[in-house]
Amino acid sequence: MRNRSRPVVMVFVWGLILIMLIWVLFPFYWAFLNSIKKPAETFQATWVPWLQFQPTLEHWASELSIRETRNALRNSTIISVSAATVALVLGTLAAYALARFRFQRISNGSLTTWFLSQRVLPPVVVVIPFFLLMRQLKLLDSVWALVLLNATFTLPFPVIILSQMFRELPVELEEAAMVDGASRLQSFLRVALPLVLPGLVATWIICMAFSWNEFLFALSLTSNRALPMPVYIAGAEHTRGVQFWFVGVRVMLTMLPPTILALLAQRYIIRGLTLGAVKG
């Protein structure tokens, strides 16, 4: 039903897709161009290397030759993968709890609202207390401080998105499993969890992305060793202005790990599709 289309429709669809592709990819292409242009050419509308300007790899060479670049990439990867995983594990459990159980003292609604409210306060308001907290825990300039923080502040995403998805699962499947002797935990792990796999993957990607991009806490809690990519990118702004060619290189580098991850993850989104189709 959904794949039977007339040629006119297909032309329209592909036209739309093409526009979206240009829209999504052009900024990356522009970042790439910035990274291979000489500083003096930054503000020129030249688009085609070799034809319009002579590209240079000097910025890539100088960025890749130093330790800081690799450190920042590594820190960012550690921070976002760990934080997203912690948030997903804790958040999925809580999401399931909110979808399947009714709590007495505090209503499910209040609990959900409370989780959500963690994302509302502007981070700058709590930067100083977190600085003090991390100093107390001896975690200043440590990636683990940022893992903790990002896990905490991305936790609402799995809680809210996944509890919606759990709720839309027919509860009978789990009940049937429990009648067959499975425990709550088993029915959660074996029945409910696989059915929300696309949601799990999507949520994990979202937690990753937010941890990957988080800037303000990273800025105030790191100074050297634990510096992640966003702060490193901001470091391209010098006393004399923004060094756009380094921004270009750094943005491109920043995109590498998530691109690989997104490519890997989308297989699971597909797999989730087939599973989801079975369930109904």
């Binding site: 500083p39 003096a40 930054t42 100088s62 960025e63 030759s65 130093i66 330790r67 800081e68 490193y232 470091g235 391209a236 010098h238 004399r240 202005g241 060094q243 380094f246």
Partner: peptide, 11 residues
Amino acid sequence: ATAIPGGETYA
């Protein structure tokens, strides 16, 4: 090796 590079301004 320990430095963030830069310093070249537009020229």
